[in-house]
Amino acid sequence: MMSNKGMSRRSFLGLCGIAGLGTIAGLAGCGGSGGGATTTAASTAAASGSSYDPVTLRVAFMPNIGSAGTLYAGIEQGYFDAVGITVEPQQFQAGPTEIAAMSSGDIDVAMIGHGAHSLAIQGQAKIFSFEQLSKADEVVANKAKGINSAADLKGKTVGVSSGTSSEVILQYVLEKAGLTKDDITTVEMDVSGMTTALISGQIDAAATWSPNTVTLKQQLGDNYLMLGTDTDFSDKVAFPGSYCCAPDYADKNKEVLVRFAAALDKAKVYRAEHTDDVAKLLAAKLELPEETLLQSAGEGDWQGAVDAIGHTDVIEGYYKAQQKVFLDAGKIEAEVPVTDYVLTDVITDADKLYESELK
């Protein structure tokens, strides 16, 4: 695992007037590399005039705007360069596999969706940056399979990726229809596999997320049926996306995490103000259909992420609400103090560094 090669040449505490730093981070998915790194940390820091000690971070992401938007915006706009960080992006398909890769030392930090946060609560990762509240998850069905409402899922085959936020939405959709998972046949699949399987008729429905939902809508046409989404259950759930790292990495690299999270803050503002540009950037960098990315531009609360900068208490509230979802679903056995796994001091210090140095 890459680590910081010394403290910044500038005293971070002196810059921000902060008395102390802390602990927190998160978890994530699976997959191969994608996107490519830029130049070396030393050269980018020198080119940008940064006086921070250079460091390279291997960063896991998933191929959608909610997961990769700020990462690639920050790379493209030079926000990470400004704090002496070179990013080596690595593409995954789900959070739990990202966490496994962090644990084995293959990556340094990862952006994870809601489902993988249960692993952070259980001590496998520390969350150090709130990314956004997701609006990307959906339970979708093929009407040609005789499904016209959620009640019609009874006896049907549904593609699921366990441990993801879409699985939680499936549970709520079933509950609202008076069903349980015992009433359906679930098939464990990764998100790309269930997209293909639903289009080809191998499964009847899927618990999935954007931009795959855009592809499904295009391919199924009039047979596409959305049975439930994040926003339908916003009174019951909060689905934060977060950047996280392994606990031992957090202990040794707090100053680097603050710098990385501060650059993400600036990238959140860019994403909110230039969402279509970010969608086009990702399409080009990840070789995805541009129209698909543009149609999925509303998959997260981008402005809400900006508004949360400097309001760590609000962010803590999101994670408390998220824990209730896991408790209700039996994913965790007992409530855990948010500050046990969310590095609120890193979030606070990053916000202050953004405000004082990067804004």
Rank of each mutant, 00 (worst) to 15 (best):
residue 207 A to S: 13
residue 229 T to A: 13
residue 310 G to F: 04
residue 199 I to S: 12
residue 348 T to G: 08
residue 51 S to T: 14
residue 47 A to W: 01
residue 322 Q to E: 15
residue 175 E to F: 01
residue 257 L to R: 07
residue 311 H to V: 00
residue 231 T to P: 12
residue 100 A to N: 10
residue 152 D to T: 02
residue 257 L to E: 14
residue 327 L to N: 10
residue 252 K to Q: 15
residue 35 G to S: 07
residue 182 D to Q: 10
residue 194 M to K: 10
residue 256 V to W: 03
residue 120 A to M: 12
residue 326 F to T: 11
residue 159 G to D: 11
residue 28 A to W: 07
residue 71 L to F: 03
residue 282 L to E: 04
residue 144 A to D: 15
residue 191 V to D: 14
residue 247 P to H: 07
residue 201 G to K: 01
residue 265 D to P: 05
residue 25 A to F: 08
residue 26 G to W: 00
residue 193 G to W: 04
residue 251 D to A: 14
residue 20 G to T: 12
residue 187 V to R: 06
residue 63 P to T: 09
residue 249 Y to L: 11
residue 350 A to Y: 02
residue 317 G to R: 01
residue 195 T to I: 09
residue 351 D to C: 02
residue 170 L to P: 12
residue 208 T to K: 09
residue 95 G to P: 05
residue 149 S to V: 05
residue 157 T to A: 05
residue 293 L to F: 09
residue 1 M to P: 14
residue 304 G to E: 10
residue 90 Q to D: 12
residue 174 L to M: 13
residue 57 L to H: 01
residue 307 D to R: 08
residue 77 Q to K: 15
residue 325 V to T: 15
residue 160 V to C: 02
residue 279 A to M: 07
residue 33 S to H: 10
residue 55 V to M: 15
residue 221 G to M: 00
residue 120 A to P: 07
residue 221 G to Q: 01
residue 337 P to W: 04
residue 233 F to Y: 15
residue 51 S to P: 04
residue 7 M to S: 15
residue 336 V to P: 08
residue 240 P to Q: 08
residue 71 L to H: 12
residue 110 A to T: 10
residue 356 S to R: 07
residue 264 L to M: 09
residue 203 I to M: 05
residue 229 T to M: 14
residue 178 G to F: 03
residue 255 E to F: 00
residue 62 M to G: 12
residue 84 G to K: 07
residue 268 K to V: 06
residue 57 L to E: 01
residue 6 G to N: 09
residue 309 I to L: 00
residue 180 T to M: 08
residue 268 K to E: 10
residue 355 E to M: 07
residue 136 A to I: 01
residue 25 A to R: 04
residue 66 G to E: 02
residue 350 A to C: 03
residue 162 S to T: 06
residue 347 I to T: 08
residue 251 D to E: 15
residue 172 Y to V: 11
residue 204 D to C: 12
residue 120 A to S: 13
residue 93 Q to C: 07
residue 72 Y to Q: 08
residue 332 I to Y: 05
residue 195 T to S: 13
residue 342 V to N: 07
residue 270 Y to N: 03
residue 182 D to W: 04
residue 335 E to D: 14
residue 113 G to L: 04
residue 172 Y to E: 14
residue 128 F to A: 09
residue 29 G to C: 02
residue 252 K to C: 05
residue 162 S to Q: 03
residue 328 D to K: 04
residue 346 V to Q: 11
residue 107 I to F: 01
residue 158 V to W: 08
residue 98 E to S: 06
residue 246 A to M: 11
residue 254 K to E: 13
residue 249 Y to R: 13
residue 266 K to V: 06
residue 36 G to D: 09
residue 354 Y to H: 10
residue 230 D to M: 09
residue 341 Y to F: 13
residue 137 D to H: 09
residue 183 D to Y: 04
residue 9 R to G: 12
residue 318 Y to S: 08
residue 60 A to G: 14
residue 195 T to Q: 13
residue 310 G to K: 04
